[in-house]
Design a protein around this nucleic acid. Sequence first.
DNA 1: TATTGTTATACTCTATAACTATA
DNA 2: TATAGTTATAGAGTATAACAATA
Lengths: 171, 171
Amino acid sequence: MTSARPSDPPSPPTADVAFLLAQVGAHAAAQFAERLSPLQLLPPHAGILRALRQSDGMSQTALSEKLGMFPSRLVGLIDALEERGLVERRSSAEDRRSHALHLTRAGQEMVQRIGRVAQEHRRALCAALDAAEQAQLAALLGRIAAEQQLSPGVHPGYRKLGKGRPGAPDG
Amino acid sequence: MTSARPSDPPSPPTADVAFLLAQVGAHAAAQFAERLSPLQLLPPHAGILRALRQSDGMSQTALSEKLGMFPSRLVGLIDALEERGLVERRSSAEDRRSHALHLTRAGQEMVQRIGRVAQEHRRALCAALDAAEQAQLAALLGRIAAEQQLSPGVHPGYRKLGKGRPGAPDG
DNA sequence: TATTGTTATACTCTATAACTATA
DNA sequence: TATAGTTATAGAGTATAACAATA
């Protein structure tokens, strides 16, 4: 693609902006998944850990709602995290049906490692841009995300859909 | 998300830029797929038509290479397009094994309709930004795409992977 | 009777492998 | 023997439905 210097006159918007968003976004997701694999985690695992760091002690139902995924899907993901000692299911005394989810010490450390991976990922992904430009990009994307009512920190790939098809490629 | 006014001092880059890219990108892809559904097309179909408009008469092998998908996957997709009279397989006289793929008149018209859908998609997706900001965003994304060596017009969701997992959510 | 979490099942998408017809 | 395209098979990933325990 051609780069645009600041002095270039602004060109009228084309549909390419939307395609570029989908293209670069899918690339970003794939790269992140790859960087995550040495930690033996899949992106949904990381999303769960991230959500728990933000609000520890959620029930599975609450978490599934927050992440927009089916409770049944959560089961296997949490199983894996619990087997590795990153997350703990504590059965509540009040309502013995529900499990409060807590990050263990190891889980908190894993969140730190994920953060470092994410930083390195950002660095490599945005190598073409300097710090100011990256901030500019973040600001533009943040405004789109807000206007499109995307929940902060929740990837659309987690969402459960009523009827429509899931997000297939292209954009 | 908070919006940043031009007067704000540039903040240092955070990993959020990468996540925002994946998040907004996945949203863009999902929205585009939804807008495409009235045309009875899936995103890969649109990708094929787009590629054929650019270089009409390719063989299926050449097309599969260009789009980064397996030839076997292409078969069903092209079947659907041919049944609807959008694409034509012309068997070559020289090498009767290979089929040259051509857009029909209806296929060319469908490409026009897809273009209009893409424009409307872009308009809705980038409603938060004015024309100059959209151009700015496109320029930044284009530089990332170039530096990351993404083929223009080719969505990573099409690619065939050797071993690594496909692009799961998050980012 | 309703709800939490779980298990079981089905469906979609796509990679891999086997096959045919040409070359 | 190799290649273009096709068909058949199998594996992820995830939604839907059925279920057990508790409320």
